[in-house]
Structures are given as C-alpha cells and as structure tokens.
C-alpha cells in the first residue's frame, strides 16, 4: 500500500495554509488518519499535501468569551485528557474515548474527523448535540458554520474548497446541563453502527443527534420537540422514541440492515435519555 506521488509543503500559519490551498489539486494534511489510508489505497491522489500539523495555534483548547474553543488540530486524546473538557463537557471526554483506539486518538484530530464527515464518525453527533459552531477560514476570510448546517451529505460538508477548519466552538453549558454519548460500535471498524449524543440543558431544552444512522450525522428535531421543556418520564420518553427518525433514510449494510439499525438507534436514544434524566 504505497500512495501515488505528491508534493509536500509544511506550513506554520493558517494564512500560509490557505494560500497553499488555492490549487484544486491540494489537500490539507492534519493528523492524516482519514487521509493517509485513502492515499495508500490510491482512492485519493492529490497533487500536493499541505501539512498543518505545525500550526501550534490550532492545537489549543481554551475557554474564551463564554465558549470552549477546541483547535481543529487538537487530537482526540488531547481533548479526552483535557481538564477543561472534563469539567465542562464530560460527554466529550466520554465520546472521545470511544473513537478508534489509543494510537488513533493520539494522532487523529477533531478537525480532520469533521472535515472528512464519515457517516459513522463520532464527533459529528457530539458537536451537533453541543450546539457547536465550526470556525473556518478561507481566502475570503473567517466565518462560523453552525454544526447543524455543516454536514450536508455522505462525506460532504458546507466547507468550501479553499477553506480550512480552524476550531470548534461550544457555548459553555450552564450549570445543570447533562450530556451523554451512547454508541453501539460496528464490531470490526469500531465506528458507530449507531451513535446517539444527547444534551439536556437546565431549562429542559434537549438536543438529540445521531451518527451512523443516515448519510450524515443529524439532529433529530422530531424527538427533541417531544421532550424539550418537558420532564423525561415514561410517557414523554415513548413520545420521543415514536417521534425519532421520522423522514430519515436509515442506512443498511452488512452489520445492520435498515430495520435493525432503526431499532438500535431507538434503543440507544432511550439509553441516552435515561442517562440525562
């Protein structure tokens, strides 16, 4: 498994990276854990790689203006071990620990995972449930894209070709917020066969996001409406489960047919809701 040839440039600032991206044939290399496997299989054959691994500013995890800001090049392990995350977003700690394995967590990055938009990746569900905004920068400047508007289809996102992700911003959850990530792993790849992230805010607002279920991770507004502002009791739980996955094209594959995956999604939604009750 040897990649086709490509040019390589290592950059140290975001501006340099964006400048280097002006060519269509160029791809960003962060941790490489989504890109390099594709290069080895020659499914991806960029003419040039721009390595952003040296932009230290992109690795920061900090609190800023009422938000937790996670740099795009922070690794899954950086996030998992970070005290700020453990304190304010413990379900990110929980979720990050289910990604890949130690080695992958040490090198794979949150930005890389989000940009790749694998339909079974874990971060998309987590950031959707957390009301995150994805901060991107391109030749025409910076912008924030709401997570709910970011994932647009199978391996596709709202990111423009000349843009790179710089950070993920999550509003600091108010006291009393509870979150959880419940995952049923595909046994071979350990990606999510279904993953359900739920955040229940102090005021009863409830965010529900799924990954692994459809072509891209999504918020389940039907299920959310059945619960938001209402107590999580048997009746409302049943209503939420009934309302979940309306109008969703559920995926079917070797490890989970459409009906089984639909069933699993509801099982894990129920687990998640009981967890944040």
């Amino acid at each position: 498994m040897i990649p086709a040839t490509f040019e390589y440039e290592k950059v140290t600032t975001v501006d340099e990276a964006i400048a280097a991206l002006s060519n269509d044939d160029t791809k960003i290399l962060a941790g490489g854990h989504s890109l390099i496997p594709a290069l080895k299989l020659r499914l991806s054959r960029p003419g040039k790689l721009v390595d952003i691994g040296g932009i230290t500013a992109l690795k920061d995890i900090k609190e800023e203006d009422g938000e937790i800001v996670i740099g795009a090049a922070a690794t899954h392990a950086d996030i998992m071990y970070h005290n700020l995350i453990r304190t304010h977003l413990p379900f990110f700690t929980e979720g990050a620990s289910t990604i890949g394995d130690i080695q992958v967590r040490n090198y794979g990055t949150i930005g890389g995972s989000i940009a790749h938009a694998d339909p079974s990746a874990d971060w998309p569900a987590l950031i959707l449930a957390a009301d995150a905004t994805i901060e991107v920068q391109g030749s025409s400047g910076r912008r924030g894209i709401k997570a709910t508007e970011f994932f647009t289809g199978l391996f596709s996102t709202a990111l423009q070709p000349n843009e790179i992700i710089t950070a993920v911003r999550i509003p600091l959850p108010a006291d009393g917020t509870k979150g959880t990530y419940q995952k049923f792993a595909q046994p071979a790849s350990r990606y999510a066969l279904v993953g359900c992230a739920v955040v229940r805010f102090a005021d009863g607002k409830t965010n529900i996001a799924f990954t692994g279920v459809g072509e891209n991770a999504f918020r389940d507004t039907g299920a959310e409406q059945a619960l938001s502002g209402k107590p999580i009791n048997d009746e409302n739980l049943t209503a939420a489960l009934d309302a979940a996955l309306q109008n969703v094209d559920v995926l079917g594959d070797h490890y989970a047919s459409v009906p089984y995956r639909r069933h699993l999604a509801k099982v894990f939604l129920r687990k998640a809701l009981l967890e944040v009750k």
Partner: peptide, 25 residues
C-alpha cells in the same frame, strides 16, 4: 493496510502511534 492491527505501533514524541498511517515527512 487500514490502521487496524497495531503491529506498527511506535512512540512519536512519547505517544503511541500507528506509523503505517504517518508519513516520514
């Protein structure tokens, strides 16, 4: 060839890494 088996695990800057999924550069 899928970063799965871990036989290539080494430490880069003190952290376990699958070096089949990393470029020498």
């Amino acid at each position: 060839d899928t970063s799965s088996c871990g036989a290539c695990t080494i430490h880069v800057n003190g952290k376990a890494t699958k070096c089949c999924t990393m470029l020498a550069v």
